[in-house]
Design a binder for these strands. Sequence first.
DNA 1: GACAATCTAAAACAGATGTTTTATATATAT
DNA 2: ATATATATAAAACATCTGTTTTAGATTGTC
Lengths: 241, 241
Amino acid sequence: MTNSDPDSQHEIEPRQRLLDAATELFAERAFKEVSIREICEKAGGANVASVNYYFRDKAGLYRELLESMLARWEAERERHAKLVEGKTPEEKLYLYVRWFIGNILEERADERDMLFGRILNREMADPSPDFILIVQKGMVPNWMRLMTIVAEVAGLAEGSQAVLLCTHSTMGQCLMYGSARRLSKYFGPPEMQFTPEIIDGIARQVTQFSLAGIRAIAQSTRELGAAGKAGSGCSGTPPEE
Amino acid sequence: MTNSDPDSQHEIEPRQRLLDAATELFAERAFKEVSIREICEKAGGANVASVNYYFRDKAGLYRELLESMLARWEAERERHAKLVEGKTPEEKLYLYVRWFIGNILEERADERDMLFGRILNREMADPSPDFILIVQKGMVPNWMRLMTIVAEVAGLAEGSQAVLLCTHSTMGQCLMYGSARRLSKYFGPPEMQFTPEIIDGIARQVTQFSLAGIRAIAQSTRELGAAGKAGSGCSGTPPEE
DNA sequence: GACAATCTAAAACAGATGTTTTATATATAT
DNA sequence: ATATATATAAAACATCTGTTTTAGATTGTC
């Protein structure tokens, strides 16, 4: 901590520099796609052996990076959950969707801390050996939070099949727009920008779409539930309305 | 074509054997993750140099495999489009969703031709150098077909922003359940089976959810359209209902 | 100042990958 | 039958990967 240089740019601990460089790279590309040499170069020309020195091996670096990232995300998730308390279920749904999509899409050039959404999204596409960790500490709690909100909107029990499927459908839309960033260079206009306003619009669309979807499923579930059948199979009626 | 051996298993042209083996492997793992040596071994112990002999290089093999696959899929897409003609928009939506999800999830042990859905889904997660080809000849026409159906359901013009976004939302759900296969080994019960009945249920759920979503968006779009504002930004109202 | 622990640097290593070369069969045509 | 094109096989090659080794520098402490 004897770091008081004016031009401190180059004076941060190399260990941290490696972690920072790796975080940015792993947010864009999969574990296997990023080489140690590339990380070291991005970390200001560190030696290739330094990763092994500080983190034992490449997997150790990734693991440590993941764990601090997951911890920070847990805090951020709880912060946002608190922030949403007391709102109506509909508002909660919008705020959740906006928050989640924002975590994947939003450009935060300055905050390197805020890349967990990207890493999570990328891991969904192309899982690393540590994917189980990410599922347990990252995806599942996140999914549960959405499920709670969906259950509120639907007015159904949190564990019910209908709520589970509605959660999947809502999450699916979020992840779809999440992938849009990775894929935008192939699809749409080149250099597409995801400004906060664009993301607002996407979140509103997804929310409105999902609200209607959830209510429709909830209603038909209640109608079916009024008869004898419990939630064994899949809810939903064939296409004839 | 002098191939009339009784035990023909081993007597197919090695070129085709390589294509077949590669197809199965690339349906599960990305281009970079599958090695030439692995393909050759699966193709009944072909020589490692045979890929370069027949296809110039690994990329050539993949390319050829992709092109025949895309051609077959185009045929299959048109077949299904014909099959759906004359149905109601709601039925069309269900049949499309069922068809598309089925192409990704369904187990077709015998038909190696029918793996394009998997390859497409995998490419979405982890694009190869030929991804642009897949987008143009595979994804876009497929997306357009869904968009046409969504426009019918919504009763809106095919090019409108609302229809575009609803198409994304519907497609997002399909792709989400598509990923479920790749990710099921981490998430749910081990060795989860996607039987036709399960897929039916998923497709019904997605259809019902999307129908309600599309109608909600369509209605609020029409209401907004009744005022002066044309479809510039994003449709959808803030969460207060 | 000397010693030890810590850190950095360069090179070497082992494994895997795609590709090329070389050699040798096998068929086909003249 | 001989020559030419085609097909197979094994080995060698070049490159990239993560890792280890070896040596050298830096730092802190007695």
